[in-house]
Design a protein around this nucleic acid. Structure first.
Length: 294
DNA sequence: ACCTACCTGTTT
DNA sequence: AAACAGGTAGGT
């Protein structure tokens, strides 16, 4: 479920609330979810920074109260139904809670905070690792190393997107946008929303888009992701932010999940088709199959 | 470029 | 009972 806007929302919430906190205790209830749990101990370490790369959350730790000078990381991927949120009490609610981190924040004179990882389908993972020589979290998973550019970075534009699309010339543009090596952070919801906003048919081969269309697509991607972050992400069912609250962007969706309903622009019936193994919603009028030359 | 697997829950 | 769900990894 969580795509870039959801992960970024969680990052912002956690960053504000638990940067500087110490990890007092780690409780893992489900084998296989917390990777390296028996090889790396992060108890006593301090959370010094929380970053995001694509749909990965990167939680940076320092040796904290111990003498270790190594930098450690917790790399989190929520996959479809993962939740990572702060609770101000110790009591746990709900099923499918797999890992809990007890936190204390001496500087803020707050205590009893718990960072909870909950995941119905159990696809999500948290990797514990020691940083490489540059202090970066390599070695977590191939997916993290191979990520394409960040669509919300300053230098992301049509040129960069065009360059990236050359990696997958024959795939549908929808398939290319879902490929995290092409662009980091888009998933099924925002790929559909961006293609609709740009008026591009999702089934068109990536190589068939002209420069003007790619510019428009890059702009649409940026605008929609930013807007979704400002709405704290999309909650269809499982997603919650860093405080276990629902997002609001589900009220702003233009095409995703609207097959059979009238297009909000032209009132044509929104269609759905399968692309790259994913249900894709699109408007046959606003997103024509053939490019109309200017 | 497809398929399946990984899981549980909800909808048809 | 079967299809489907925000994602990715691994196979063919």
């Amino acid at each position: 479920m969580p795509e870039l806007p959801e992960v970024e929302t969680i990052r912002q919430d956690l960053s504000r609330e638990i940067t500087g906190c110490y990890i007092d205790k780690v409780i893992s209830y489900t084998p296989g979810v917390l990777i390296n749990e028996h090889d790396i101990s992060i108890s006593g370490q301090q959370i010094t920074d929380i970053q995001r790369r694509g749909k990965y959350l990167l939680i940076k730790l320092s040796g904290g109260k111990s003498d270790r000078k190594d930098i450690f990381w917790m790399v989190v991927h929520l996959r479809m139904t993962g939740r990572l949120y702060i609770q101000n009490t110790d009591s746990l609610h709900g099923k499918h809670i797999h890992v809990c981190f007890s936190l204390s924040c001496p500087e803020r004179k707050k205590s009893g905070k718990t960072l909870v990882f909950q995941d119905t389908r159990r696809f999500g993972r948290i990797w514990l690792l020691i940083s490489d020589r540059e202090g970066q979290p390599t070695g977590a998973t191939e997916g993290l190393q191979q990520l394409g550019p960040e669509p919300l970075d300053q230098n992301f534009d049509g040129h960069q997107l065009a360059d990236q699309l050359k990696k997958r010339p024959r795939t549908s543009i929808k398939g290319a946008l879902l490929d995290q090596r092409v662009l980091a952070g888009l998933g099924n919801i925002y790929a559909d929303e961006a293609l609709f906003a740009a008026g591009i048919n999702p089934a068109r081969p990536a190589e068939s888009l002209n420069a003007q269309e790619i510019d428009k697509l890059a702009d649409s991607i940026r605008r929609i992701l930013s807007y979704a972050v400002s709405c704290q992400g999309t909650t269809l069912r499982d997603y919650v932010d860093g405080w276990n609250r629902k997002g609001k962007f589900q009220n702003r969706l233009q095409v995703y999940g609207r097959a059979g309903s009238p297009c909000l622009i032209c009132s044509s019936e929104i269609k759905k088709m399968k692309l790259a193994g994913r249900t894709t919603s699109w408007c046959p009028v606003c997103q024509p199959e053939i490019t109309t030359p200017e």
